[in-house]
Design a protein around this nucleic acid. Sequence first.
DNA 1: TTGTAGGCGTTATCAT
DNA 2: ATGATAACGCCTACAA
Lengths: 349, 349
Amino acid sequence: MSTRRATIADVARTAGVAPSTASVVFSGKTAVSDATRQRVLDAAAALGYTGPDPRAASLRRGRSGIVGVVVQGPLGTVFLDPVTRLMMDGIADGVAGLGAGLLLLRDDVRDHDAAREHALTTAPLDAAVLVGCNPRMRDSLATLRGRGIPVVVIEGDAGEGVPRIDLDNREAQQQMARHVRSLGHHRVAMVALPRDAARERGWLVPGDTITVDVTRDRLAGMREEFPDAGAFAAAASSIDEGLIAGRVLFADPATRPTAVLAQSDLLAAGVIRAAEEAGLRVPHDVSVTGFDGVNVDGLAPYELTTMAQPAADKGRAAGHAVVAMLEGRDAASFRFTCTFHPGNTTAPA
Amino acid sequence: MSTRRATIADVARTAGVAPSTASVVFSGKTAVSDATRQRVLDAAAALGYTGPDPRAASLRRGRSGIVGVVVQGPLGTVFLDPVTRLMMDGIADGVAGLGAGLLLLRDDVRDHDAAREHALTTAPLDAAVLVGCNPRMRDSLATLRGRGIPVVVIEGDAGEGVPRIDLDNREAQQQMARHVRSLGHHRVAMVALPRDAARERGWLVPGDTITVDVTRDRLAGMREEFPDAGAFAAAASSIDEGLIAGRVLFADPATRPTAVLAQSDLLAAGVIRAAEEAGLRVPHDVSVTGFDGVNVDGLAPYELTTMAQPAADKGRAAGHAVVAMLEGRDAASFRFTCTFHPGNTTAPA
DNA sequence: TTGTAGGCGTTATCAT
DNA sequence: ATGATAACGCCTACAA
């Protein structure tokens, strides 16, 4: 059809006003007489002009209205985790005031050079949130900061000058461990989140380096109360992984733990299934605790004894931090606290 | 610190070359002598220039490198659905060739005017994918098309001229119904996906208008074989909802169905739990079928008899369609086919 | 291989 | 309340 979309200049011309006036009609930055406004609007309608081109506006304003969310791994698996989902919602909420959209960026090992670098260096971001920062994320962080883009990190080691949103993982897990100990348990084991990017399943041994902060901190919290407890790392946070780990823990009736502390609710749900499978009743024969406080779909009638974390609030805080930085204020780091949620999955030893 | 970020002009100046030369060094569109390139790169490093400003480049090129994905409802609940997650992965894959990022846009009932319109009219999109188009989505579609942005719709009524990616929902569900009938079942019931945006739980009665295409089509497919079977609509696609629906179906031992056709695997998983709860064994006492062919976390040792849909492929196809449109070719609509996956949840009546 | 010039579509500033 | 003007930062013919 038409060879070219109408521009605001075209609209202004047919309306018989100056481009700047037409611009103001759309942006609302200055008062315009009703008559003029109407003429501009009519002209726009006639030409099929639907509003300023965001690209041009963005160049001129120096803002794109886009906040990047950098996650690791395929988008599909990212959203497997209920905590991440909640955080995303929180972030969306937190930046809502900007009218900004969330651009999903993946920081993946594959296509290390090509696509990743591409999007990260090339996307028109006003700011970015890094989720679950691990060593690999450091590169992304560097790239972003190099571009002068304000960054907020959620649960990760960010380095100097980067606002971070944190959780009292260690203290919370310790609190849970204390609860379990107060019930009289001594033979306890932990089912841990992945230890590093390789995500290998298996027992954690003392010398291991654990590069995932969350895993390390929750483990440390548990060890505060049970220094000698074994910990089995899962390959992911899922019910199926919890089931696999649980089978390992319950394999030998002679040495099986009387309480299992899982580092996530999903893992805990899997451990419960493993217990059922092994003919153990929860919490009668074995106590199981979770972490996160999310609703595990399909777990009813169990209600997990867990440490509830304010996942959405974390996201929201990150969003607010982003807004603050964009407005020139400086954003403080913030540390959230988990709360103990008693359920029906723990009982005296 | 510095009052202003360096531009390519600054780099060119300190390197002692013309801006266009410096530009070429970064874009690689033309050959440049190694000496010149090095000087430019050095100058860039010295000035802390990390590459062209995407906003300016995007204006000049007429492309932003951003593909919008429009979903309905809070991100967190959207991604609760494994099919959606897989589709997202597929879309990401499909547009990978563009080096584009995915911008999440929500088409929500809340903030109908303010934020939504805002993002949809304001975001610098090259193209968009509408996921799960229902009546409300029509507005978004209109907005986007008004802006001249190429749009692809996945499983939804798009209107003329919009490429759509579809699934043989009706035929597939009919195939499953036939399987169930061939096993000798006569008393069957369906657990359906939500019927409309209101997502009210309850029995579907003949006069009902079902605005969700997927729900309607799968229901129709089942009715082809079992014209009189009852159908109970869930409020969402989740295990918990399936459990609730299953409890209703199994409430009265006298009238309980011997086979339940669920419109999603998650619902089917819930129905299985309900059956267990009611003391019924699957598939001995009651057969249960799913739809989607996703891995339901925590369902082991059951393996659902289900219709597997190529969810990631759908997303990929949408991505390819977007790429095609962006390259000026026109994108054809495509209809995917489900395949029957036998599991261990169905047996003779 | 390198440089020159013009414009992509807006909007901020300043003057009227 | 409206208009003229000048960037915003880059890219691409085209000329040299």
